[in-house]
Design a binder for these strands. Structure first.
Length: 486
DNA sequence: ATGTGC
């Protein structure tokens, strides 16, 4: 695209021209370079979001934004249920509550360098990964509903992890308002043997080291020091979240599965823009409430999944490094719709904030943060592409007014999976990463080509843009040593 | 992201 028509508001904020149907402005956060590289589809999608009923303040794209199903990935939009606000499947994303958690290990890079290979093999054996791969747990009978209602709280109750973990997870590890009865039996069946598994695509389990401290005070609050080893887990709700999204799209979008099967698909009364992918339902409607009940079950599923994987990782470390203590720094989801309190025109309101490929980023002092983190702000875990840096940022006070306390979630794709496969060879990438000291283990070398660092934006540029826009403050930069890749 | 398809 050209920058023609975008109005610059400061160094890292751009407003799209208001076109017909837009109820609020559409805002892109990012440097000149990142905004210039965004494709037209991403901006068209952002405009569509700005047309939805009940949207508050603005439709926003984070610096890592790219086009997705309906909403852009890297999109943030808040809706007011009292003014016809909607909830959208494409606004949450297919992998409901996909997210990142980071564990501190108490080890340093020097401790583990000589045993990287052994660690890579052990983690790869212990944590199932890859398309369709199941885990070690089979959910029988009542267990499924209990997991969907209880999230990480359920998992800790079953012996996966420790109670102290729960304080370091959004919502104490359990999203309230989940209604497992609104999850289809088909969706339930898909998670039956998948709990405690990574999945595929951009999901990973990485052992990283803290290469640079960028904010000493906040790093101290997060217990991070230069040279420290941390473990980051990036995954979501596997087939269950995907199926929940698909089920509701099929039900609510005209031209969906019902029509393809020749059944009478009722025209969807909730589709306000001419794009089937923008399917949504009023928050205050029967299907809206039903989707929220199912989607929150998907959130709990992802929280339980990351909790079980944490347990598996701890078992591996207990074997190889018996002195290590794997304390949870934080767990943050980046595909959600959450009911949150925000100040709009001087009044506190409950808004339904969609963050799709965007993280919550609460500023210092927020009451939802655990006491130990309250002074520093919420850890914002920004996952890098394979073999590249990741960042730990912290939420800011300005972020509340700028982006409903939201920030970027990762590097963000620039090449499609197909294009990445054309340009890169998985085995060659693994070999060159090995030369750089990064030990990669995977079920799929094709997946490695799709996840080539060259298929992603520059994460340094993304995080410096988020910082420049005031959405989050850089705390530490990490580099990978071991990567188990879906 | 995804039993990488209906």
């Amino acid at each position: 695209m050209t920058l023609h028509g975008l109005a610059r508001h400061g160094e890292f904020e751009w407003h799209l021209p208001m076109t017909s149907g837009m109820r609020v402005p559409a805002i892109v956060f990012g440097s000149l370079e990142l905004v210039r590289a965004m494709d037209d589809k991403t901006l068209t999608q952002l405009r569509n979001v700005a047309c939805l009923p009940g949207i508050v303040r603005a439709a926003m794209a984070m610096p890592d934004a790219h086009s997705g199903y309906g909403f852009p990935i890297g999109g943030v939009a808040a809706f007011d249920p009292a003014h016809g606000g909607v909830v959208s499947m494409g606004g949450v994303g297919f992998d409901i509550s996909c997210g990142v958690r980071t564990l501190l290990t108490g080890l340093t890079r020097d401790h583990i360098l000589a045993r990287r290979e052994e660690l890579a093999d052990a983690l790869f054996r212990a944590v199932p990964s890859g398309v369709g791969r199941g885990g070690t747990i089979i959910l029988e009978g009542e267990d499924l509903a209990a997991m969907l209602e209880g999230g990480a709280v359920w998992a800790v109750g079953r012996g996966y992890g420790q109670p102290a973990d729960l304080g370091r997870i959004e919502d104490g590890g359990r999203m309230p308002g989940a209604v497992p009865g609104h999850v289809s039996p088909h969706a339930g069946k898909r998670i039956r043997d998948q709990l405690g598994s990574l999945g595929s695509g951009n999901h990973y389990l990485e052992v990283q080291w803290v290469e640079k401290i960028l904010d000493p005070a906040r790093s101290a609050a997060f217990a991070l020091k230069e040279g420290d080893v941390v473990v980051s887990i990036h995954c979501g709700s596997r087939g269950l979240g995907h199926q929940i999204g698909q089920d509701f799209i099929d039900e609510l979008a005209p031209g969906g599965k019902a029509r393809r099967k020749g059944k009478n698909a009722a025209p969807n009364p909730y589709l306000p823009v001419p794009d089937r992918e923008m399917v949504c339902a009023p928050i205050d409607s029967e299907p809206g409430r039903r989707y929220l009940g199912a989607m929150r079950s998907g959130i709990n599923c992802a929280l339980a999944n990351r909790q079980v994987i944490t347990h598996l990782v701890r078992e591996v470390f207990a074997d190889i490094f018996p002195t290590a203590r794997l304390d949870l720094l934080y767990d943050v989801s980046h595909n959600t719709c959450r009911a949150e309190s925000h100040r709009v025109d001087g009044k506190e309101k409950t808004l339904f904030v969609h963050r799709k490929g965007a993280t919550r980023a609460l500023g210092p002092g927020h009451p939802d943060l655990p006491a130990a983190l309250r002074g520093a702000g919420q850890p914002v875990l920004v996952g890098g592409s394979m073999g590249t840096a990741s960042y730990i940022l912290a939420g800011t006070t300005e972020g509340e007014a700028r982006s409903f306390s939201s920030a970027c979630h990762g590097a963000g794709r620039v090449l499609s999976r197909t294009e990445a496969r054309r340009r890169f060879v998985g085995r060659d990438l693994m070999e060159s990463l090995r030369h750089q000291g990064v030990f990669v283990r995977t079920m799929s070398s094709r997946g490695i080509a799709e996840e080539a660092p060259g298929a992603y934006k520059d994460i340094d540029e993304v995080t410096s843009s988020a910082a420049g826009a005031g959405l989050a403050a850089p705390v530490a930069r990490t580099l990978p040593l071991v990567c188990v890749k879906g």
